[in-house]
């Protein structure tokens, strides 16, 4: 199988570019989805007092 340099450049500049943009947007949407705020706030606080269990 021979893939030329030009082919790779085309793929990198089209699929590669939009793939990275899509992944970035997915991360942003996940992190900033409004209804997740309560869940994230709770998670951030959850580590402050974790020596007392409950432990399963």
């Amino acid at each position: 199988m021979d893939v030329s340099h030009d082919t790779l450049v085309v793929i990198a500049k089209t699929v590669g570019l939009f793939l990275l943009i899509a992944m970035f947007l997915a991360a942003v949407v996940y992190a900033f989805w409004p209804s997740k705020k309560a869940k994230f706030d709770r998670a951030a606080r959850s580590v402050l007092d974790d020596e007392d269990g409950p432990c399963r």
């Binding site: 990275l20 996940y30 706030d41 580590v47």
Partner: peptide, 24 residues
């Protein structure tokens, strides 16, 4: 760090965003 400072991380959302940034 949050545990010792007894304060939650400043922005949990930013920590998620920078996780994917650093990883990719």
């Amino acid at each position: 760090l949050p545990k010792r400072a007894a304060r939650p991380i400043y922005s949990y959302r930013l920590s998620i965003l920078s996780f994917w940034g650093i990883t990719f």
